[in-house]
Design a binder for these strands. Sequence first.
DNA 1: TATATTGTTACACC
DNA 2: TGGTGTAACAATAT
Length: 290
Amino acid sequence: MPELPEVETIVRDLNKKIKGKVIKSVQVRVPKLVKNLNTKFVQALLGQKVGSVTRRAKLIKVKIGQQKTLLIHLKLTGQLIYREKSGKLTAGGHPIPQDLKDLPNKFTHIIFTFTDESHLFYNDLRKFGWMNLVSESAAEKLPNQEFGPEPLSPEFTLEKFKQVLAKKSGQPLKKVLMEQKNIAGIGNIYTDEVCFYAGVKPTRQVKSLKPQETERLWQGTRHILKSAIKHRGTSVDTYVDISGRQGGYIPYLKVYDRVGQKCKRQNCHGVVKKIKFNGRGTHYCDQCQR
DNA sequence: TATATTGTTACACC
DNA sequence: TGGTGTAACAATAT
């Protein structure tokens, strides 16, 4: 499921692959995935040149022509897959999920074709994702009302993190870390991983955190997100990059999806537990997380 | 067939 | 009015 590191990986790849290409055709097979869909959606895209691709939280922003931006949210199971004209997937020997070898497949809902006959496929098993074509100015303004600071930006200092926590001192840690208005881009996987890094249970009340724990949470947020980007994200579900390759961060997961397995902390003999908390599957080691 | 899945949002409530 | 907490929602696999 794409969170900040997975979306960042996709954005970087899109910049390499589709920036500068001109849109030749757009096929919308499942209309509900396009917000404000009308005849102008396709019309406004045709013949336009793709500009730079950026990210805000888990939202992908694709500049279209001079004045428009295409917003894309992958939600749980959205995939963007880029394919050259030949249609052959060249992942350099990496394994490709069977259903991605031959596209479009039954989960392909939107298809962009560029003038060089390359394609960008939007696949979505659950159909929870969406895209929306908006004016560039709207794209610049809107996200800043919806999202807190980017955790990897220079503005996300320890002081800033403390301020965010101070406003939510009565809430449980996990809830605060996952709320996009507080900090942008962290989802269920990386929340659990950050809490493990800091040696703190995700269920802790924010106001109970000691200064040292707060600092480790801040460090952990930055360290883990950076590391996950370096390894091109985590594929626990359907996530793949735009070439169909899975992310390489799975071996580095300490608690997420490791229920019943031995704690990876040195000298800790605990076993990873899984509970339902804040409505979500939550993983931690109760030996070394306090 | 019931259930789990998760990011987002609608909505009830104080 | 605004903050908060809960439930609903999307569709599918198992």
